[in-house]
Simulated scan of single mutants.
Amino acid sequence: MPAYKTGKRTQQYTLEFKIKAVAWSHFPHPSVKDVAETLDIHPFMLSHWRKEYREVNGVCR
């Protein structure tokens, strides 16, 4: 029987990359969409990281 490959492999990002992306997205000039495009990630992913950051650090926005 042939071996089946599991779908697309997802990219793993380091914690340092995520923190820098979140920090950059909090600057007043770029939008979340612009930051995500620049980093070549989906805007939803960046929004998810921002939410995780708020939950972990108790930040209210």
Rank of each mutant, 00 (worst) to 15 (best):
W49E: 07
E16C: 01
H29N: 12
M1C: 02
K20P: 00
R61T: 15
K8W: 00
K8P: 00
C60Y: 11
T38I: 03
R9A: 08
P28N: 07
L39I: 02
V35C: 12
R61H: 14
V56S: 04
Y13V: 00
Q12I: 13
P28L: 06
T10M: 13
T14G: 15
Q11R: 15
T38N: 09
C60P: 01
P2C: 02
W49G: 06
F44N: 13
R50H: 07
V32T: 09
V32A: 05
E55D: 14
T6G: 09
D34T: 07
V32K: 04
S47A: 12
Y13M: 04
P30C: 02
H42R: 09
V22W: 01
E55R: 10
Y53D: 15
F27E: 11
C60S: 15
L15Y: 13
G7D: 10
V56C: 01
L15K: 13
E16Q: 12
G58M: 06
K20T: 07
W49I: 01
V59I: 15
T6N: 11
V35E: 06
H26T: 11
K51S: 08
K18E: 08
F27W: 05
F27M: 12
G58R: 02
T14N: 10
L46Y: 04
G7H: 08
R50C: 10
M1T: 07
L39P: 02
R50K: 15
G7R: 11
R54D: 14
A36C: 12
K20R: 08
C60Q: 14
L39Y: 05
P2V: 02
P28T: 07
